[in-house]
């Protein structure tokens, strides 16, 4: 057997490009300074919405970046198609996948996942008597678990947006959704009934990548942590 040092193995295993998956939308702006101080800033075209490419380079050698929908970040990371990424803890809760680690809270994108219902329903309703509820949500898994834990069966209607419309149009009486200030709820005649979780964005890592490239991934985790705590 030939003598191969740990450094050689690491160098070999590190020879393939890594992929950083970032969510489209408003979070990008908030995490840009963190990426910059961690040495992972994407090239300019990445932030240009008219640029039709999907894969870009970063200032870090050997790290490419893709922009995808926030739920898809979790999918890419879980299956090892991307090695690192940024995903909201709401997405991670819903996805609940054993191949994803979430080592750093980026402290951005803070909001809350709540149960809301129409004002009239909230006034008449007695939650103690529930055995079944119908809920419109983007988060059927979290919703089912949340209600199941208190002995209530949740029938979830999966919607991808504009959840706030559902109660007013008679689709259901309750929704589970993210709220930041509560103004969208208010504007649509809804009130918050219960909070399910505090939400913020996390730096996430694929499990196999963490195990096979600990130096590189660990280095980025440390830099991201420093960037978050320093900034």
């Amino acid at each position: 057997m030939t003598e191969v040092s740990m450094d050689d193995i690491q160098a070999l295993q590190s020879s393939e490009n890594m992929v950083l998956a970032l969510p489209k939308g408003r979070i990008l702006k908030a995490i840009r300074p963190i990426l910059k101080s961690a040495g992972l800033e994407p090239e300019e075209g990445f932030f240009d919405e008219n640029d039709r490419r999907l894969r870009f380079t970063t200032e870090a050698e050997g790290v490419d970046v893709i922009r995808v929908r926030s739920f898809d970040v979790a999918t890419f990371i879980a299956f090892g198609a991307a090695h690192m990424g940024v995903a909201g803890s709401d997405v991670l809760m819903e996805f609940d996948h054993p191949e994803i680690y979430a080592p750093v809270d980026l402290g951005v994108g803070a909001c809350r996942m709540v149960v809301a219902s129409s004002i009239e329903a909230a006034e008449q309703d007695d939650p103690r008597s529930w055995s079944h509820v119908r809920v419109a949500t983007k988060y059927p898994n979290v919703t089912k678990q949340y209600f199941a834990a208190r002995g209530v069966q949740a029938e979830c209607i999966k919607l991808n947006g504009a959840m706030e419309l559902a109660p007013g149009l008679g689709l259901c009486r309750r929704i589970v959704d993210l709220v930041e200030t509560g103004s969208t709820l208010k504007a649509n005649g809804l009130v918050e009934v219960e909070e399910i979780a505090q939400v913020s964005s996390r730096f996430v890592v694929n499990r196999a990548a963490w195990k096979t490239r600990p130096d590189q991934i660990g280095g980025f985790v440390e830099k991201i942590r420093d960037a978050v705590h320093g900034g």
Partner: peptide
């Protein structure tokens, strides 16, 4: 213990 190979998903 779990055994991995780079680029292969899962162990």
């Amino acid at each position: 213990f779990a055994i991995f190979s780079p680029g292969i998903r899962g162990e």
